[in-house]
């Protein structure tokens, strides 16, 4: 077991820019965070906030269509300076990824067994028989009933939830230390989502795998993550332990998100709603990106972007007025 305090992954000033029709669109704007071994980090935000792009930038998938700057240290080594070929020995082995729609990320023409064994072949030195045994073991781990008989099945013979389990089994084949999960349960029903989340949690605990979980659902974060990072318009607005952030949010956006979820409020009363919509990437405000929708915004918010700053007890927030909000929440 690795040292708990040591960061497995350190992301520093990650910036991803897309070029479209002669304009630079900054989808991710200088985000920094750490992931420790065996930890579940939630990356939460609404659509277009840059959470998925951040994840793809870490693993080198974003550079096909954009410019990625900053540093991503994997056990102290910068991944961004590596070529695709050099990345191969990290990507898919030490770091694995699972996606929202498992149907499109599984090859429909190959049996599930073959796809798992393929990954085993690439990343382990097991022989054929051992590979098959391991594949069965993996399917068993992810909770697929009668695993040995399902090796010969094709992806379309599995239900949505089972396919996501297969994806996780493939991702586990290389004994990864970090699992990047991009909205893994968004396409699933709530009872299946619950099963998959429990599975991910047990993996994190039993195999000491760190997970970065991208989601838009604060409930999912509350149920699975140790720490959470909230994104808005490409920037991190708040990070901290799940309990701190969800119970005492410091940023007006996090507060707004939490209050728009109808929980613990009398039925049929108006929900708290954040006015307006998130800004388009080609029309980002000069100051704080949330300022046009923020009830607290003042001149300073329109003029300058607030930096993510530590607020004592492990929570960091990017707002010019964090102190005031804290009092309001507590009141």
């Amino acid at each position: 077991m690795t040292n708990q305090n040591e960061s497995l992954l350190q992301v520093r000033d990650l910036t991803t820019t897309f070029h479209s029709k002669g304009r630079a669109l900054r989808a991710v704007d200088g985000i920094s965070f750490d992931v420790r071994a065996g930890e579940v980090l939630g990356l939460v935000g609404e659509s277009g906030s840059g959470k998925s792009i951040s994840l793809r930038s870490i693993i080198g998938l974003a550079r096909d269509y954009g410019t990625v700057e900053g540093n991503v240290y994997w056990k102290g080594e910068d991944l961004l300076t590596r070529t695709d070929k050099q990345l191969q020995c990290v990507r898919g082995s030490q770091i694995s990824m699972i996606f929202q729609e498992p149907m499109t990320s599984l090859n429909p023409l190959l049996t599930v067994g073959l796809q798992i064994e393929e990954n085993l072949k690439a990343h382990t030195d097991l022989d054929r028989r051992a590979r098959k045994a391991r594949a069965i073991e993996l399917l068993d781990t992810v909770g697929i009933p009668s695993a040995s008989s399902r090796l010969k099945d094709f992806p379309h013979q599995f239900s949505g939830g089972m396919r996501q389990r297969v994806m996780i089994a493939i991702a586990l084949a290389s004994n990864p230390e970090l699992l990047l999960a991009d909205e893994p349960t968004t396409a699933l029903d709530v009872t299946i989502q619950d099963q998959i989340l429990q599975l991910l949690l047990s993996l994190a605990k039993n195999l000491n795998i760190a997970i970065v979980l991208v989601t838009h659902d604060l409930g999912v974060v509350a149920q699975t993550c140790d720490r959470v990072a909230v994104m808005y318009a490409g920037r991190l607005v708040e990070t901290g332990s799940v309990r701190d952030v969800l119970k005492r949010p410091q940023h007006p956006y996090t507060l707004g998100l939490l209050k728009s979820v109808p929980e613990n409020i009398p039925p049929r009363t108006p929900l708290y709603s954040v006015p307006g919509t998130p800004p388009a990437l080609d029309a980002l405000p000069k100051g704080c990106a949330f300022a046009p929708r923020c009830y607290k915004a003042e001149d300073v918010c329109l003029g300058s972007k607030p930096l993510l700053s530590q607020l004592g007890d492990g929570i960091s927030s990017a707002c010019h007025f964090t102190a005031d909000i804290r009092e309001e929440v507590l009141a």
């Binding site: 009872t191 989502q193 429990q198 659902d217 939490l258």
Partner: peptide, 17 residues
């Protein structure tokens, strides 16, 4: 029971179904 609650203190450890 499967619907994820916003309260991190109300975690359940096994799937509801």
């Amino acid at each position: 029971a499967a619907a994820p609650s916003l309260d991190p203190d109300k975690r359940h450890t096994r799937p509801s179904i």
